[in-house]
Simulated assay, not measured.
Amino acid sequence: MTSASIKQAAWTHGLGVELETPSWSALRQGFYTTVRPSSGSTFGWVHFVIPTPVIVDGNRLRAVTAWIRYAAGSSAKITNFHVYDGEKKIAGFDGLALNANAISNDTRSVPGGPAVLWGTAISLGVQFSGNGPNDYVQFVSAGIDFYN
């Protein structure tokens, strides 16, 4: 996909993260959201709704690269990174062990750079070892690069 140039990059701030597990906590601060598990649930999903420009200048855009910006405590890791267009999963990366003690980026190519039709989202599976002081993830932002 390097022969084409990026048309749009759409990001959302970590303040907009949605928790699938209602017992988890989310401390929303100006610079990120800190997610912590509950004592009863140490694996769950968090979701980012990405603003999606599906058509620009009469051309349908393609999702090419998905990004997250985060930091995690030593007892937490991101194990799954999924990208959706509406109800269709357009990329899925499982069996990961993403952990960064300082704010870092993780980038994933969307296979085939599919045209987007319905609106995109990034879903992340998060695994905690328990609910101690190092069981947290700080989500700064998430985004997708769109090409013609």
Rank of each mutant, 00 (worst) to 15 (best):
Leu15Ile: 05
Trp11Val: 02
Pro53Phe: 00
Leu124Val: 03
Gly119Pro: 06
Asn101Glu: 08
Ala102Phe: 03
Lys88Cys: 02
Ala26Leu: 10
Ser74Glu: 12
Tyr70Arg: 04
Trp45Gln: 11
Glu87Met: 07
Val54Leu: 04
Asp85Arg: 10
Asn59Ala: 06
Phe31Tyr: 05
Ile68Gln: 15
Ala142Thr: 05
Ile144Arg: 00
Val56Pro: 02
Ser5Met: 03
Ala4Val: 08
Ala9Pro: 01
Pro51Ile: 02
Asp94Met: 03
Lys88Ile: 09
Ala142Glu: 12
Ala115Glu: 13
Ser5Cys: 06
Thr12Ser: 15
Gly125Pro: 01
Phe146Tyr: 10
Ala71Cys: 13
Lys7Glu: 10
Phe43Val: 01
Val140Thr: 12
His82Ala: 09
Ala10Leu: 10
Asn99Tyr: 08
Ala26His: 04
Ser38Asn: 02
Ala4Asn: 14
Thr52Glu: 15
Val56Tyr: 03
Ala142Cys: 14
Pro111Gly: 08
Ile103Glu: 00
Phe128Tyr: 05
Lys7Trp: 07
Glu87Ile: 01
Thr120Gly: 00
Gly125Tyr: 06
Tyr147Lys: 15
Leu117Thr: 08
Asn131Leu: 07
Pro53Trp: 00
Gly92Asn: 13
Ala115Pro: 04
Val54Ser: 15
Asp85Asn: 11
Ala71Pro: 12
Asn131Val: 01
Glu18Arg: 09
Gly14Ala: 06
Gly40Gln: 12
Gln29Pro: 06
Leu124Thr: 08
Thr33Leu: 05
Ile122Asn: 09
Gly143Lys: 00
Trp45Pro: 06
Gly95Arg: 00
Tyr70Cys: 06
Arg108Ser: 10
Tyr147Pro: 01
Val54Tyr: 09
Leu117Asn: 04
Tyr70Ser: 05
Asp106Leu: 01
Thr107Ile: 14
Trp11Leu: 01
Lys77Leu: 10
Thr42Ala: 02
Ser39Asn: 10
Ala4Trp: 13
Ile55Trp: 04
Asn134Ile: 02
Ile122His: 12
Val56Phe: 10
Gly132Val: 06
Thr21Gly: 00
Ala76Pro: 15
Val35Met: 11
Ile103Asp: 02
Ala4Tyr: 13
Ala63Leu: 12
Ala10Glu: 12
Pro22Ala: 15
Phe128Val: 12
Phe43Tyr: 03
Ala142Gly: 15
Ile144Trp: 06
Thr42Glu: 04
Ile55Arg: 07
Val49Tyr: 08
Ala102Lys: 02
Leu15Val: 01
Tyr136Met: 08
Thr21Phe: 01
Tyr84Lys: 15
Glu18Asp: 03
Lys7Gly: 04
Asp145Phe: 03
Gln8Cys: 07
Gln138His: 14
Gly119Thr: 10
Val64Trp: 11
Glu87Gly: 07
Phe31Pro: 01
Pro111Ser: 09
His47Trp: 13
Leu124His: 11
